[in-house]
Design a protein around this nucleic acid. Sequence first.
RNA 1: GCGAUCGUGGUGAAGUGGUUAACACACCUGACUGUGAAUCAGGCAUGCGUGGGUUCGAGCCCCAUCGGUCGCCCCA
Length: 444
Amino acid sequence: MDIKLPKGTKDILLAEAEAYEQVESALINVAKLFSYAAIRTPIFEHTELFTRSVGDSSDIVRKEMYTFTDKGDRSLSLRPEMTAGVIRSVVENKLDVTADLPLKLYYVGPAFRYERPQLGRFRQFHQFGVENIGITSPLSVAETISLGVTAFTVMGFKQVTVKLNSLGDSATRDAYRTALKAFYEPHLPSVCPDCQQRFQTNPLRMLDCKVPADQLLAKKAPNITNFLSKESQAYYAEVKHALKDLSVVFTEDPQLVRGLDYYADCVFEFHMVSDKGLDYGALGAGGQYNNLVKELGGQPLKSVGFAFGLERLMAVLSDSGRLDNVKPFTDIYIISMMPETDLYALKLSHNFRHTNFKTELNLEHKSMKASIKAALKKDAIYAVIIGDQEMKANQVTIKNLQTQEQQLVPVNEVVHLMQHLTNQPGHHHHEETDDHDDHGHKEK
RNA sequence: GCGAUCGUGGUGAAGUGGUUAACACACCUGACUGUGAAUCAGGCAUGCGUGGGUUCGAGCCCCAUCGGUCGCCCCA
């Protein structure tokens, strides 16, 4: 076969797919803890939605969107991020006027950007995020940030730091932009070519230039904190105060600017260092967007949200050895020894499955050695062996794969016995997926 | 979009123009005819990302192309 997957995409399969599911469900559980509800929006939207919200001067819209014209001559785009679609949906369904506020929504799903792929960066990637729409208190911003921190904690990471900044309102940013340009104007000839470009398009981005000389200069640049209005200052102070009370570790970074046009006031990033000491940069980021709902035709609602990049999250988890023993598990592995016993085995598997046992049925008729090895590879707890001796006697052999003990039991008692042996009718000992240090059921 | 680097089985990889593409792990089969280890014996890439070219001869050289990775840009 010579058709390969497209650049910047990947197949997620087997253990990795399992890991994605577990991480997603852990994140969703945290969102539910904070009383968030699910939302799913289309993968493509009218292009105009993104040019209006993300901003038609942003790089995302200018050069990273998958935009196409459909057969009805509509310009559509694969979503490059999730917030725009969520807010569009909220406004379109009038949730901004009918729902109790603040409206708290979480989402998980793929998004698309035409970018040069790198580690942890794909053209189709997955985001988990939350939107807290219609907030009235700065404490809600702190609450939302702490949701993000809690998500990291639940995944086993303690060393999360939050980078925090306030961009103020639009008047603040206009004044600041003017001051920044005035500051940079005389230095323009000595600054890097990218920054000369940024000076025209988005002067705020000059602050996080990576060129050392420009970084030194940026340190001397005017600080946005000094341009904040009284209200923004007070608001920002309350957010910080609440974060301290919640023991959220944060550092203020006046040079933190975000690339999406809709951000205002508080913006933040979640940073993590892996167990190996590697700095993965921002694993998640977000901020307030106070005009977006109105801009898209709804009520003027202050809002805050953030998104995590699942691929980056998975990279850190994997690098920290937290995905090593993530795999599907099986309670009972049924081995049918020969074609004549297959139907007998199939019926038994049916009974196990209907009593909530994860059951694998092996009809391959390989050697006993190979069959037992296959059962072990599936991480099964019990093997149920069915040969013609068992079938003739209406019995089965059950083997505890950990203790290697085995016994012959009557077939009509085996389900009941298995429930007794595994110590439950409810039988949910695998179901806790939020703790990635404990996937082995062997120590039970 | 720019710059750099890499591309050999399921995996890690040797190979720098000359017979059958090393080695290791994994996997399969058997010795062991119904039980997880060890050992031993076999098996497992008709092919070196793809397409051209140079050559008597190409995994190796050249060109193109696709893809990965890293840096820039940007971002989750």
